[in-house]
Design a binder for these strands. Structure first.
Ligand SMILES: [Zn+2]
Length: 462
DNA sequence: CGCGTTTGACCGGCGC
DNA sequence: GCGCCGGTCAAACGCG
């Protein structure tokens, strides 16, 4: 299934495949794995080690005193200490959740206030004032046919200049919709060992699910990435079931279906941008009905969380239906775009679509900074800014992985942090062993990233 | 020989 | 009703 890769698109005799997690130039920075958990695990290991040492000391001293009761006492103390730590951790998590909620509310207000004074062009084009030069919000919906197809065509022809050099480093577009989590966002998350954190996240998810049940449509997640490869490796196995020439596009659109499970309904479309053939647009639809390899899970969770963020942001402080319809009309006129450089809302599509625009990852560090500053009010709510640490120095521009970019950019959003935390926590139980199975793209993955690319991004859930 | 891709046929939605 | 179009099916084909 992957051998056709090079046949699909003429152009590249090159890397048969691009990997989401690989750096475009597998160069320089050694550590690029997008490894949310290891950071966390490391932390845990560290504390565990500390505890062990502690035990040792205490036991030796206990032996010195030769009182078994003393030993018990010390052990109890240790236990107490651990429990305290745990308690503290839980409390911070709770605090963070609360802060996030507050932040969310604040954001809603901010958005509200902001959007009114500064809505822009009627056709949905929005230029984010906070983004700074070189950043634009684009509405890329080329994948979808829709009532306003003509309009969209015009728009895309207008905006796809992005494919040019500098354009939106990261755009996140979504159309409003009733829901984002159709049933089980990721099943692999469901059966992981539970921690208190997970329970919380479960609760969160259930909330989301409740909302979801209302939706009758699938949500789409569209990813735009610059790639010479005919298909990006996202951790899943896909089987091609069709290919069509899209109307306004010389490049054919390929249709894939997930083959990791027989009944998995997930489909994906892959198409090159007509204006810039180096940009690959991948659109996912549906929810996997099976556990995903970590790579795919990260992807799924990221996109899901991003979508959740946008949608929750859009619905905060309002009832879902009224607000979503409201949003729909508003976004149609470009009113409802979030004030995040990478986020915008669009209701041009019948099917809810979240678009991650990664066509220019190189700008990320800067755009991130913009976001951070622009969102500083939000970030204030985070005890420890949920973290994104790009290397001390932003690595050479083209070196960040797509996933890193996505995650980093989105993660700056506090609400996203919550959502992502949920997603991540669900993956904590995944053993690293699973990770190498991630061969993602499956069998063929020649080019590349046999493993997750390393990333300097760390995510602290505390 | 099994499996995945290829590719034209087919289907349903939508606009005229 | 007709044609267009996006999406899917499935027989044929190719590869290991
Ligand atoms: Zn699947």
């Amino acid at each position: 299934m992957y051998n056709n890769i090079s046949q699909d698109h003429l152009m590249d005799p090159k890397p048969p495949e691009m990997t989401f997690f690989r750096l475009e130039s597998a160069d320089t920075t050694p550590i690029r794995e997008l490894d949310f958990f290891s950071g966390h695990n490391r932390h845990r290991e560290a504390t565990a080690a500390a505890v062990a040492v502690d035990d040792e000391n205490s036991s030796s001293s206990a032996l010195g005193s030769s009182g078994t009761t003393n030993i018990d006492l010390i052990m109890l103390q240790d236990e107490l200490k651990l429990v305290k730590e745990e308690n503290w951790r839980l409390r911070s998590m709770l605090d963070q959740l609360r802060r996030n909620y507050t932040a969310l509310q604040t954001q809603f207000q901010v958005i509200h206030q902001r959007d009114h004074p500064r809505q822009e062009h009627k056709d949905g084009k929005i230029i984010s004032s906070v983004a700074g030069p070189g950043l634009q919000l684009l509405d890329h919906q080329f994948m979808e046919p829709g009532p306003s197809g003509l309009k969209r065509k015009i728009r895309s022809s207008r905006y796809t200049e992005d494919d040019g050099e500098q354009s939106s480093p990261l755009n996140l577009t979504t159309s409003t919709t009733p829901t984002i989590f159709p049933s089980h966002p990721t099943d692999c998350s469901a059966d992981q060992p539970s921690s208190s954190m997970e329970e919380k996240t479960k609760a969160i998810k259930e909330d989301a699910n409740a909302d979801t049940e209302l939706s009758y449509r699938k949500t789409r997640v569209s990813v735009r990435a610059r790639s010479d490869a005919p298909m990006i490796s996202d951790g899943c196995q896909w089987r091609k079931y069709g290919q069509k020439m899209a109307k306004g596009n010389p490049c054919p659109r390929a249709y894939y279906r997930c083959t990791m499970s027989n009944d998995c309904p997930v489909r994906k479309q892959v198409q090159r941008c007509s204006n810039d053939k180096s940009v690959l647009v991948t659109t996912y639809e549906g929810i996997h009905k099976h556990p995903l390899p970590p790579a795919a899970t990260v992807m799924a969770n990221t996109t899901t969380a991003a979508a959740a963020m946008l949608l929750s942001g859009s619905t905060t402080g309002n009832t879902h239906h009224s607000s979503s319809s409201l949003m729909a009309s508003a976004s149609g006129t470009g009113l409802m775009h979030m004030h995040y450089p990478f986020a915008s809302l669009s209701a041009l599509t019948p099917i809810p679509t979240v678009t991650l625009d990664l066509t220019n990852p190189s700008d990320t560090p800067y755009s991130l900074q913009h976001q951070l500053s622009s969102l500083s009010t939000c970030n204030l709510f985070l005890p420890q800014p949920s973290l994104i640490q790009f290397g001390p120095q932003p690595p050479p521009p083209q070196s960040s992985s797509v996933m890193e970019t996505v995650t980093a950019a989105i993660a700056t959003h506090p609400n996203f942090t919550t959502a992502l935390a949920a997603a991540i926590s669900s993956m904590m139980g995944v053993t690293s062993g699973f990770a190498n199975g991630e061969g993602g793209g499956g069998t063929a993955k020649s080019s590349g990233s046999p493993r997750l690319a390393k990333s300097c991004t760390t995510f602290s859930v505390n």
